[in-house]
Simulated assay, not measured.
Amino acid sequence: MTLLALSCTLIFVFITMFVSFWKRLGLEKSIAIGSIRAAVQLLAIGYVLQYVFQTEHVAFIILIIAIMTVVATWNASRRGAGLKGVFWRIALTIGVMEAFMILFLIGLNLIEPTPQYIIPLSGMTIGNAMIVSGLFTTSIKREVEASRGEIETLLSLGASGTQAMQGPMKRAVKFSMIPTIDSLKTVGLVQLPGMMTGMIIAGADPVEAVRYQLLILFSHTGSAAMTSMILSMLYQKLFFTPDARLRKIERS
């Protein structure tokens, strides 16, 4: 793809900005800034990855994954404003899931232990865990506020914090899994995933591309479920005082 052809795709951004201006939505600035940031960030990471792929130094791989994890954690933890200790809980969960998934795939010889495989798959895994973490955090805050009377009643009747939070936690886990489950139901019928599409455009055999895409889908489904379940355990004490009373969640 030539630079001129790529530049022509900016017409879609301009159309969106025009519609926003026409309808007085006030999104023109956000769209412009977002488009510029996306271009700069992707070009920068493209040059960085080109260098890392050539050197294949493990320190660079670890550094890139660490940066991905910190940024993803920061973004997801913003959903938990008013809850102390959210950042490190999400960071721990994403870090554990990233390490587990990559070591699992390498251990079964499903991918080669090279930057070309590890970094892109890590990005997808961390991004998926970030989305699940953000959705879970948003949902559990809402569930606790909506079920405050029910939780306090159960506590007054002698239930433990874990028992009292069982209902809200289950609903939050289900809510955080909705995008993943919906994606599984519609993949191939409504959408062709990015990795599969990219491989096909690059000239790979469609069946081989499907196999790699299934590997990603299945691993992401498992990591999404485990991410929300780990968070449900780590979040238990966030909502209670040392004497087992339900905390008042600060408004963000």
Rank of each mutant, 00 (worst) to 15 (best):
E208N: 11
S160P: 06
S133R: 05
S252T: 10
E143V: 07
E250C: 00
L246E: 02
S176C: 07
L157D: 03
R171A: 12
E56P: 00
L103E: 09
I151P: 08
K174D: 14
G46Q: 01
Q191E: 12
P179N: 06
F14E: 02
A76S: 11
R24M: 05
S77C: 13
Q54P: 01
T125Y: 03
L27V: 10
Q191C: 03
M177E: 04
I61Y: 05
A81D: 09
R211K: 15
M1I: 13
V210H: 07
A129D: 09
D182K: 01
P242S: 12
A76Q: 02
I61D: 02
I11H: 01
S232E: 11
R79D: 08
A91W: 11
E143T: 09
E150S: 10
P120W: 07
D182H: 07
L4P: 01
S156A: 15
T180L: 07
G188H: 02
D205S: 10
A225H: 00
V86H: 01
A209T: 06
A164T: 04
M169W: 01
D205R: 10
T93V: 10
I230L: 13
I140Q: 03
M229L: 15
I45K: 00
V71R: 08
A164Y: 08
V144M: 04
T125L: 13
Q54D: 14
V19E: 08
E28F: 10
S133N: 11
Q163R: 10
L214G: 06
Q116S: 13
A224I: 01
L110N: 04
H220Y: 12
A164L: 09
E145P: 03
I216E: 12
D182E: 12
V210A: 15
A225P: 05
T2F: 13
R148E: 15
A99M: 15
E145L: 15
Q41A: 12
A99H: 04
Y51Q: 13
F136E: 06
G198D: 10
G203I: 13
S147A: 14
V96W: 03
M165W: 00
T180D: 07
P115C: 07
T73D: 08
L3S: 12
L108N: 12
R247L: 14
P115M: 08
G26K: 01
Q163C: 00
T221Y: 14
I33D: 11
A244V: 08
F104G: 00
F136P: 02
M226Q: 03
I67N: 00
G95L: 14
L103M: 14
E145C: 08
K174I: 15
G34M: 09
I90K: 00
K29S: 04
L63D: 05
F12R: 02
H57W: 13
E56C: 01
S20K: 10
F218K: 01
L92M: 08
G161C: 06
G222Y: 09
A38K: 02
L155M: 10
Q41D: 09
A76M: 03
T93W: 04
L246D: 05
K170Q: 14
L155K: 06
L10Q: 00
K29Y: 02
L49C: 09
K29N: 08
F100W: 13
W88R: 05
T16I: 11
F175W: 06
P242C: 08
F12L: 15
A224Y: 10
L92P: 04
C8Q: 11
G158P: 06
I178R: 07
S252Q: 07
